[in-house]
Structure formats: structure tokens, C-alpha cells
Design a protein around this nucleic acid. Structure first.
Length: 856
RNA sequence: GGGGGUGUGGCGGAAUGGUAGACGCUACGGACUUAAAAUCCGUUGACUGGUGACAGUCGUGUGGGUUCAAGUCCCACCACCCCCA
């Protein structure tokens, strides 16, 4: 009867059987509590990598556990299928993006299925499918109707040779085009934005309602939103009616303002420029226009600025101060203008020094001896206001409010809260994305495509050259349509949406994934949402998660949903790293199969010694391990076990073949354990704690300890690594047990299989059936701890002297403190180390230790 | 510069303020085998003493502190990683 463990055939068999039985279908309405387990859906690159294996395995263990614990579980899968790589493939190889993507999806689906993940494939969602992006467009229209989608001029990366707009990913670190190598320029285009800033405050404050999120993700989001409290102040321009508005977090330093700076793109720039400065200013604007934002604001780069010739008035002092323009001030940011206080801001200090601008001290440390000493650096600490007219002597912290109050009274300023977060630019000048459902009419302006005409479908069989306008903008028959409102000949919007839009609502689609009449059924999303456990990479800590929260809040407001955060709990899993070999001299990476001696790795070409370290698996580092090869050799169960055991889920995981081997050995031990048991014809009999021998009691304690520990490890914080080690302990205990005929042993075998089921689903199922069971192990109830089995008669009591462990004794488990102390005093260890010294104090910790304190 | 995180054997990692190193990997020794692989058994933090069971000292990045007792709590520092500038 015994056969060898052959994962390949066995896993295949069960995957097919489960599919036939539709075991992983999501139960619709029933009385069980719901559990929505979700992994971040992948981009269909066509190849499964280890990072995927890790996320989906983690989520799958949770899903399978919850099913056994009596939940109805939704564990869906889909594809984040729009995006640049498909378009690049079209340019390079002439394959249509749709075809290329579909092929990749088919391949990856198959690969994923071989992992044995319990996805409900009936709910598969593909963002590039018209029946999905129809609803992405519909959601855009919801934003449009509420005024939260709007158009504004904004800069794009422009390749002057190919005459095309480039995505940020297509621009290298030196600011050159990936294809033409041309230096990328900035060009202004009218583009679509979503007004996420309207939700900035709620996105920030509601982070407090997410105790199930890692603190560091919440901190990153909070920093990204970047709330700062301060004042909006207006500086009248000399000789004009206009004013320059600035935002500052340091209104207390306003008497120290010695200049104001406009962003070069600011509409006032040319208006304040005096005629003698015009040429210089225009040249400067031109120059800055070619710089990237990162270059402009980088801290290590000198800040460049020039005077415009214009001047403004400091409304507090009445002083006339110069107006400059500088590269580090961005028009998109805040008001596009800043006030310069060199004495109390580091950046202003440097800028003033470099440009010969005056520095005026208005804050001094408390009890400063000589307030007029020349500064060597900006003084940015709080202090006392000086040279500040009526505010002299005011502590600077209190001075902030005092200045705001005064400005408000005088009508040249007010309190303001500003966010770092900017509105979300969703326009992409690309083909492979959801078309923005707008028609531009010369009569009516931007008109939404009526809902019954959605989706605005992407035309097929398009030509891709990588040059010129976006492929959509070159298709006249697609572009030219009558205005939906007045019928005048009009033109379609040719921009498509950022792929982050597609992924900002996909989790709302799964509860009713095949609905043709609506993006989602309100009853169903109110039932299933929020996602109970979301699992994905830390790289999405900011954008994807923030956008999803924004969409959820917006839709919750608009449709009165009963939830306003999408993800209850978030697990950010660490990277999978591979052993990397690098020649430190040449900087070249060497693939492992070219290395002759792994104990002393050297460059096969030059013979130079190599650096060996772990780094994130990637093609360029030649350190990837192909999941399919691992599956072929060891099976999915081993791969899953290894990944879960090797490191806690949120930490980086170092791939190690020897450890994979170790997991394979463990599964083989389980295999033998159970097949031997089955061979001996042993039956499952109910076990209980009455009339057991000592070895039986010990074994049963091990069994129920395992239940308790594994259950505990899988609850709240997911500690799969220690859960697996508990499985190993149980397996070891069964292996060592002599009482193989006992019902306790049978109970142990059955328990081991049930506890193993979420981790190694195929093997658990196979062995379960080998024991004569007909139903699936995945439909069994998760084992319960029998507390009576955990009771021990005797425990080990540690004897300490002055806090040092000196020995231990066996004592009755329920002995009281006095008895423990007495037994401890009599112990050999205490006799030896205490001797006849005076015992000053005795600490008795029941069930743990007795500590005698004696003079040294 | 600001914010967050991490630091434990040869390695990955365990440890409600209570026997540090669970579990696994590696290495070494042994059994089985003609031999090897696989498997099984044992040892594996360092140092000192002892043939030995064992006994002792040190030991969780560094330095201090609180405590009967600190990997765990507090203070300062160092190193590395991540995010933001």
C-alpha cells in the first residue's frame, strides 16, 4: 500500500478534482460570517516570479484557515492588465497589446493554478477587458459629475526626436528617452486630474481607524499627505494692483522677509518683470523649463535664481523688497510663490548668501546675550521675536498666532492649512489604458459620454511606431464623433487613464464580478466589504493604497455605502531575495550556473573573487529562481511550506535551496508517518483524556499544544513561520511516540493533517483520503483545543540564586507558594549555592521559578 | 536633515520582564549499504576544568540605568535598511 511521495502527479490530480467539485467557489448568501481575503492582483507580465508565489501563498493559507473556521470566504484573483509593457511589445514586436496581454494572462493563470491557491476563478477580473473598463469609465464620470475630475495644463515628458510623450518610466536617470536617447523636454498639455486634495484631511485622519495596518505604512501615507499648519499672506506688488500670495509655516518670521520668490512659470512673473530684466528672465524661464522637478528641488544642488526687477511691499513693515524667480519654487506647489526669510530658514539662508540678498534676524534664542551677532547659519529653533515692531518680545510659538490674528484684522492674510499632497494627474497620452469618456465639442466644451454609450472602446488593430502622437490621437475615424449633447461634429478625448485608476476599485468588483448592469451591486459590496485581509508588497504603501482609500471614500459618499475604508487589515510581505554573485571590480553580475566553485566563487572570465550577498531577485541581477522549476522538482506544497517557514511574512526572505530541501524532507516524514499508520490498519477512534497511560497523556498534550499554538500563530498577527515549526514539533512527537495503537495516536495523525491542510493542501488531501475519508479535508472543521489535555501534573521549577539559574527540580504543577519555597530550599542546587548564607529575600513565581537573594 | 525600522550561534530565525537560542539549515560523528544517494540516530553559542555524566565563567550591536531577575523596560551612542526632503 505504501507508495512514494510524488508531488507532481498528486498535486495535479487534486487541482483537477477541486476544480471539478468547485470547492473554491465563494458561497453566496448563507448564515456564516464573511471573510474577504485579497492579494494585490498582478500585472500579467507572462511569468510568475517568487514574489507572486509568496503573496498568494500567504493569502491562501489565511483563506483556507478561515474556511475551516466556519467563515464564507471570498478569495478572488484578477489582472492589472493595462500598462506600458504591452504597448512596448507592440512597438518592438508588432503584437497587438490586447493579444499580447491575453496570452500572458493565460500563461500566468495556468502557472498560478499549479500553486494550488484556492481562488474563485469565476470572479476573475481583467482591467483591460471592456466589461471592466466600462465601469472604470463610469466611475470617472461620477467624479466628473461631482466636479472632482477637471482639466488643467500640466507638464509632460516630451521626446523631441520621436515627437512623442514619454511616461516617467521611459525616461532614464539622466533625463534621456529610452528609445531615441534624446534629452527629454517639458511640455505643457491640458490634462485630466482627480481632486484627491478634497479628501486630504479625511485620508489623513482616518488612518487612526486602521489599527490593522502596519504603523510604517500609515506613517508613509501621513508624510505623503503632509499636512502643515500656517498662514497665507499677501504681498502687494509695487506699481500694480496684484498681490503675491504665499504660504508659510513660520508667520512669526514675517518681519524678517527680505525678498519674495515666484516660480518661473507663475503667471505674475512676466508681469512684474521690468523691461531691463525681460531678456534675462525669459532666458531663465526657458532654461528652467528643461529641468526636471527632481533636479530643481534636489537639496545638494545650488539653488539658482535671478531678480525680476519688480518689487513688492512687506505689508507688516511697509518695506520694499525685491521679487525674484528661482528654480526651486514650483508653480504646482502651494501658491507657486514663497517668502524669503534667510535668517530663519536653511534653504533661504543659502539662497540669500549665494545671491547677495540681505539677511535680517527677527527671532533670537531666549536669554540671547548679543542678538545682533552675524549668523553663520539660519536659526530655525523657536525663540523670542525681535525687530518685529509691536511683536517684539513675543515668544515665537505664540507669535505665529498673533501674526495671523493681526494679518486677518488688517486684511492681508489668514490662517491656512496646506497639504503636500497634490491632485492626481490621471491623463496618459497612451493607447493601452481605459479611454477617458469625454467628447470635446467646440460648442459645449468637455461633454461626458452618456452612460448608455459606455464603454468607449479601444479600437483594435492599431499601428504602433513609438513616434508621434498617441496611437489613439492618430485615428481619425475613432476621434471624430458628434457631440452627445448638441450633435455638432466633435472630437473624442484621446488620453487614457493612469493604470492606478483601474486598480483603485477592483476590490469592489469581485463581490459581483460578472454584473452587466452596474459596477457593483450595493447590497453585495455592503455585505463583503471591507476587505478583511489585504496582502501585498510594501512598494504600494503610498500610491495604490492611498488612491484606493480615496476612491472608496468618494464612492461611499456618493452611494451612501456602509464602509469608508477599503482594507481592514493590511499585511505587507517582504521581498524574496536571491543569492547574488557580483564581480566588485567590473560591477558585473554572474549567474550562479557559471560559477565553478561555490565555496570560493570567482569570475569565470577573469578569475577575480566575487562578492556574494542576497538581493531582491531580478533579471538584471541574474539571481532569480524560477518558481516553475521549483514546482517541478519539489511540488507546490514544498514551495509553500518553505516560503512560509523561512522568514516572518513581513520580512525579506532569502531563498536557499538547502532549506527548500529541508521542507521537502519534512513533508516526506509526514508522508511516511501517515502511510505507515494507514498500512497498519489503524482506525480513527475518538480519544479523550480518561484512563490514559503517561505516554498517551504526554502525546495528547503535544497534540493539543500544537492545536493551540498553530491557532494562536494564525490569529491576529500572522506568524506562519512559527506555525510551521509547531507542525514539525507535532510530527516529531508522533514520530517518537511508542503508543501507535492508541486512539491518541490516531487523533494525533488526524490533527496533524488538519493543521497541515492550509499550508500543504495537496498532501493533506491525499493522505486524508488514504485514511479512507471520502470528503475533502478542506471542508473539515478546524480542530478545537481540549483544555483538559493541556493539564500537566508536574512542572520544572527553576532554582535561582541572586537571579542566576542554578538548577531545576520537578514539582507538582498545582503546588502553592509555600510548598514551592520549601521544595526549593531543600533542593540540591539551593543547598550548594546558598549554603549557610543568610537568605534576605525569596521570590516565588508559581509554575516558573524560585529566586533566593543572598549577600554576595 | 526629519520620520520609521532592524541588530540574538556558522546561517534563517524562536523567546506574556522569569531556564536565551524553539523549529529548521549547515557542519561533524555514527548506523544501514560492496559503495554512494536517500533514510535513521547523535553532537553542534564561546571559553575553562574533567576520561565521563557534569561543573563553572562569559554571551542577544556598544556604554550606562531600573529590577530579586533585562534580548525584552528607560537613557545615550554605533551600524545597517526603508521612506520623505
Amino acid at each position: 500500500m505504501e507508495s512514494r511521495y510524488t508531488p507532481a502527479s498528486l498535486e495535479n490530480k487534486w487541482q483537477n478534482t477541486w476544480a471539478q467539485q468547485q470547492l473554491d467557489r465563494t458561497p453566496d448568501h448563507n448564515d456564516k460570517p464573511k471573510f474577504y481575503a485579497l492579494s494585490m492582483f498582478p500585472y500579467p507580465s507572462g511569468n510568475l516570479h517568487m514574489g507572486h508565489v509568496r503573496v498568494y501563498t500567504i493569502t491562501d493559507v489565511i483563506a483556507r484557515l478561515k474556511r475551516m473556521q466556519g467563515y464564507r470566504v471570498l478569495n478572488p484573483m484578477g489582472w492589472d492588465a493595462f500598462g506600458l509593457p504591452a504597448e512596448n511589445a507592440a512597438i518592438d514586436r508588432g503584437v497587438q497589446p490586447a493579444k499580447w496581454t491575453d496570452r500572458n494572462i493565460d500563461r500566468m493563470r495556468q502557472q498560478l493554478q499549479s500553486l494550488g491557491i484556492s481562488f474563485d476563478w469565476d470572479r476573475e477580473v481583467t482591467t483591460c477587458a471592456p466589461d471592466y473598463y466600462k465601469w472604470t469609465q463610469w466611475i470617472f464620470l461620477q467624479f466628473f459629475e461631482t466636479g472632482l475630475a477637471y482639466q488643467k495644463e500640466s507638464a509632460v515628458n516630451w521626446d523631441p526626436i520621436d515627437q512623442t510623450v514619454l511616461a516617467n518610466e521611459q525616461v532614464d536617470s539622466e533625463g534621456r528617452s529610452w528609445r531615441s536617447g534624446a534629452k527629454v523636454e517639458r511640455k505643457l498639455l491640458k490634462q485630466w486630474f482627480l481632486k484627491i486634495t478634497d479628501y486630504a484631511d479625511r485620508l489623513l485622519s482616518d488612518l487612526d481607524e486602521l489599527p490593522g495596518w502596519p504603523d510604517r505604512v500609515k506613517t508613509m501615507q501621513a508624510n505623503w499627505i503632509g499636512k502643515s499648519t500656517g498662514a497665507y499672506l499677501e504681498f502687494p506688488i509695487v506699481g500694480r494692483d496684484d498681490k503675491i500670495g504665499v504660504f508659510t509655516t513660520r508667520p512669526d518670521t514675517v518681519y524678517g522677509v527680505t525678498y519674495v520668490v515666484l516660480a518661473p512659470e507663475h503667471p505674475l512673473t512676466l508681469q512684474v518683470t521690468t523691461s531691463d530684466r525681460r531678456d534675462a528672465v525669459e532666458a531663465f524661464i526657458q532654461e528652467v523649463g528643461e529641468e526636471s522637478e527632481i533636479d530643481r528641488t534636489a537639496e545638494d544642488k545650488p539653488k539658482r535664481g535671478i531678480p525680476t526687477g519688480g518689487t513688492a511691499l512687506n505689508p507688516f513693515t511697509g518695506e520694499e523688497i525685491p521679487i525674484l524667480i528661482a528654480d526651486y519654487v514650483l508653480y504646482e506647489y502651494g501658491t507657486g510663490a514663497v517668502m524669503g526669510v534667510p535668517a530663519h530658514d536653511r534653504r533661504d539662508f543659502k539662497f540669500a548668501r549665494e545671491n547677495g540678498l540681505p539677511i535680517k534676524t527677527v527671532i533670537v534664542p531666549e536669554n540671547a546675550e548679543n542678538p545682533d551677532t552675524e549668523l553663520t547659519d539660519a536659526y530655525t529653533e523657536p525663540g523670542v521675536m525681535v525687530n518685529s515692531g509691536q511683536f517684539d518680545g513675543t515668544p515665537s510659538e505664540a507669535g505665529k498666532q498673533a501674526i495671523i490674528d493681526y494679518a486677518e484684522e488688517q486684511g492681508f492674510g489668514k490662517a491656512r492649512i496646506q497639504y503636500r499632497l497634490r491632485d492626481w494627474l490621471i491623463s496618459r497620452q497612451r493607447y493601452w489604458g481605459a479611454p477617458i469618456p469625454i467628447v470635446h465639442c467646440p460648442e459645449c466644451g468637455a461633454i461626458p459620454v452618456p452612460e448608455d454609450q459606455l464603454p468607449v472602446q479601444l479600437p483594435e488593430d492599431v499601428e504602433f511606431s513609438g513616434r508621434g502622437l498617441s496611437p489613439l490621437a492618430q485615428l481619425d475615424e475613432w476621434i471624430n464623433v458628434p457631440c452627445p449633447s448638441c450633435g455638432t461634429p466633435a472630437k473624442r478625448e484621446t488620453d487614457t487613464m493612469d493604470t492606478f485608476v483601474d486598480s483603485s476599485w477592483y476590490f469592489l468588483r469581485y463581490p459581483d464580478a460578472n454584473n452587466d448592469n452596474a459596477a457593483f451591486d450595493l447590497g453585495k459590496i455592503n455585505d463583503w466589504m471591507p476587505v478583511d485581509q489585504y496582502v501585498g508588497g510594501i512598494e504600494h504603501a503610498i500610491l495604490h493604497l492611498l488612491y484606493s482609500r480615496f476612491f472608496t471614500k468618494f464612492l461611499s459618499d456618493r452611494f451612501n455605502l456602509n464602509f469608508n475604508e477599503p482594507f481592514q487589515r493590511l499585511l505587507t510581505q517582504g521581498m524574496v531575495q536571491g543569492m547574488t554573485y557580483k564581480n566588485p571590480k567590473t560591477g558585473k553580475y554572474i549567474p550562479i550556473d557559471q560559477i565553478l566553485n561555490l565555496d570560493d566563487p570567482s569570475d569565470p572570465e577573469t578569475g577575480e573573487p566575487l562578492e556574494v550577498f542576497y538581493e531582491k531577485m531580478s533579471k538584471s541581477k541574474l539571481n532569480g529562481v524560477d518558481p516553475l522549476q521549483v514546482l517541478e522538482k519539489y511540488g507546490a506544497d514544498t514551495a509553500r511550506m518553505f516560503i512560509l517557514f523561512k522568514a516572518p511574512p513581513e520580512k525579506d526572505l532569502e531563498w536557499d535551496d538547502a532549506d527548500v530541501e529541508g521542507q521537502y524532507r519534512f513533508l516526506n516524514r509526514v508522508w511516511r508517518l501517515v502511510t505507515d499508520f494507514a498500512e497498519n490498519g489503524s482506525e480513527m477512534k475518538a480519544a479523550n483524556n480518561d484512563n490514559l497511560s503517561k505516554p498517551e497523556k504526554d502525546l495528547r498534550r503535544a497534540v493539543h499544544t500544537a492545536i493551540a499554538e498553530v491557532s494562536e500563530d494564525l490569529q491576529g498577527e500572522y506568524q506562519f513561520n512559527t506555525a510551521v515549526s509547531e507542525l514539525m514539533k507535532l510530527s516529531n512527537a508522533l514520530n517518537d511516540a511508542k503508543c501507535t495503537d492508541s486512539p491518541v495516536y490516531a487523533e494525533g495523525i488526524e490533527t496533524l493533517l488538519k493543521l497541515l491542510a492550509p499550508f500543504a493542501p495537496h498532501m493533506a488531501e491525499e493522505l486524508w483520503h488514504l485514511l479512507g475519508r471520502r470528503d475533502s479535508i478542506h471542508q473539515q472543521v478546524w480542530p478545537e483545543v481540549d483544555e483538559t489535555a493541556l493539564v500537566v501534573d508536574e512542572i520544572t521549577l527553576v532554582i535561582q540564586v541572586n537571579g542566576k539559574v542554578r538548577g531545576n527540580i520537578q514539582v507538582p504543577a498545582e503546588a502553592d507558594k509555600a510548598t514551592l519555597e520549601k521544595l526549593a530550599r531543600e533542593s540540591e542546587a539551593a543547598q550548594r549555592h546558598v549554603g549557610d548564607k543568610e537568605i534576605k529575600k525569596v521570590i516565588v513565581v508559581p509554575k516558573r521559578l524560585v529566586n533566593f537573594v543572598v549577600p554576595k
